[in-house]
Design a protein around this nucleic acid. Sequence first.
DNA 1: AACCCTCGCAACCGCACGGCG
DNA 2: ACGCCGTGCGGTTGCGAGGGT
Length: 266
Amino acid sequence: MGRKPCCEKIGLKRGPWTIEEDHRLMNFILNNGIHCWRIVPKLAGLLRCGKSCRLRWINYLRPDLKRGGFTDAEEDRIMELHSQLGNRWSKIASHFSGRTDNEIKNHWNTKIKKKMKHLGLDPATHKPMNNITHQTDPNHQDTKPKMCSSINNEGEEMKDQTPKDDVIKETAKALTDNNEELVEKNWKNLRAEEVDLESLFETQGNEISSNSSISSLYSNISRNESSSYLAEDSISLEQWDLDMTDPFVPWDLFAANLDHDNLFFL
DNA sequence: AACCCTCGCAACCGCACGGCG
DNA sequence: ACGCCGTGCGGTTGCGAGGGT
């Protein structure tokens, strides 16, 4: 009746890995490589199933993992690849060095999905959705940005949006008019369309260089851009980086001493 | 202080797939 | 062609941390 389990579950440990288990697995793999995950736990002296060992290695112990928060560029790339590949996380992960499919999948489900909904895009289709928020907020209709170039290829959905050039002109005027609210609003949309706002700011810089309010606004938006998409996310990327750093495992030392010839199996 | 809720991440589960005899 | 086996993949769950009441 059905397939038998991949491993004998009785007597095997489950749940979070201990440091000692991590060290045992790391030492074994680095000394012996991986030929059969099923026998790895037995030979390494671990009360885990092979699947669990594989997952732990791939998602956490592998020395080439990047770890830490995703950059805006990475997020944009994930969205672009997701629009082309769908939920094929391993395929998406293959476009990034040092990122795992699990990591990307988690980031998608916890952050990017929210970000897209916030921008009025359906995470499943990457197309604009009829959002109640937009219907009740007249400002949203003109500022709905596109996030992915692939959506551009579809064409139709974007035709009714405010032309990018007009928004740029409007933003430039808002800069000179000291209209902080409009600058901030347009900034997010233009940034989402990959408009070089730094150049725009420099262009307008002569006229507003004495305007400390707009300058500081620009700095604040630039610095906190990613978190500004998500008003509910109060953790900055810097903070996240710190939180994501594992204090117990000396990765750099580990990687520096690694014989990369042993990683043929990755 | 205690409880509840939400969020993010690590880990698990079950199915799919490919290699091999 | 078929069944077995090991591995890969994507969806889901569990749990700890942090914030709110």
